[in-house]
Amino acid sequence: MYSIQEKLDLLHNEIKEMGGIIDLDWCGKLLYTYYEHFNDNHPRYRAGSLLAFWGLLLDWEEESGFPFCTGIEEQDCHHFDKYLQEFLTYSSNIKKQYPNIYLAIVESLSQLDERDGWENEFPNIPSGLFNTARKKLLQNGVEKPSDDVYENVFREAEMPY
C-alpha cells in the first residue's frame, strides 16, 4: 500500500517526465484515492490531490483516456462520484486556498458536463449529486481561465514542471 506522499512524488516525476499532466498512467501506477485528501491537514497533500483530480478530468476532457469507473464494468479506475462529492464538500475552502486549482477543476467539470453530460457517462450515479454540483459550481456560469491560471495550478500544488 502506497502513501499519499509516495503517490504525489510519483505524480510529480510523471509530470516532469511527460512535460504535463495529460496522458499519465492514472489507472496503473497513479491509481490512488486522492479525494480522501481534499481536506488534508498537510497542504501539499491537499493541493497535490486536487491537482490529481484535475489531471483525471483533463484525461477525460482531452479524450486521451477515461480514468473513471462507469459502474458498467469494474476495473482499476477512479470513482467520479467520490471525487465530485468531496470536491463539493470542501469547495469553499478549496476556492479560498487554491483559487487557480479550483477554477481549473470547475472549468473542466463544466466542459465535460456540456460536452458529454455526466448522467450519460455515469448512469449508475444518482442524478441528485450532479444537480447539486451544477447548482453549487456551475449555475452562475464558469469563468474561462487565462493561460497563467494553468501555470499557477502547478505552483499552488508545489509541483512545477
Score class of each variant (00 low, 15 high):
Phe80Glu: 02
Asn93Met: 11
Glu143Met: 14
Ala104Thr: 01
Gly141Cys: 06
Gln5Trp: 09
Glu73His: 10
Glu114Ile: 11
Asp23Ile: 04
Trp54Gln: 06
Leu31Cys: 07
Lys82Arg: 12
Leu31Glu: 10
Glu74Cys: 05
Thr89Phe: 02
Glu73Met: 06
Glu17Val: 09
Gly48His: 00
Ile4Tyr: 02
Asp23Pro: 03
Lys16His: 09
Tyr32Cys: 05
Ser49Tyr: 01
Leu50Thr: 08
Met18Arg: 14
Asn131His: 14
Gln5Asn: 12
Ile4Pro: 00
Phe38Asn: 07
Glu121Cys: 14
Tyr161Gly: 09
Ser127Leu: 12
Leu30Ala: 01
Leu84Val: 00
Gly55Arg: 00
Leu11Glu: 00
Glu86Gln: 10
Ser110Gln: 14
Ala52Tyr: 00
Trp60Thr: 05
Gly65His: 04
Val149His: 09
Asn41Leu: 14
Arg46Asn: 08
Thr89Leu: 06
Thr70Ser: 07
Thr132Tyr: 12
Glu114Tyr: 14
Tyr2Thr: 15
Gly141Glu: 06
Tyr32Lys: 01
Glu143Pro: 10
Leu11Phe: 05
Asn41Trp: 14
Glu114Ala: 13
Pro43Met: 09
Trp26Asp: 02
Tyr45Gly: 08
Lys95Asp: 06
Tyr83Arg: 00
Ala52Lys: 00
Leu137Ala: 04
Asn152Ser: 15
Leu112Lys: 12
Asp116Cys: 13
Glu121Val: 13
Glu73Arg: 10
Glu86Trp: 01
Leu137Phe: 09
Leu8Asn: 01
Tyr90Cys: 00
Leu109Ser: 05
Lys82Trp: 03
Leu10Phe: 05
Gly117Thr: 03
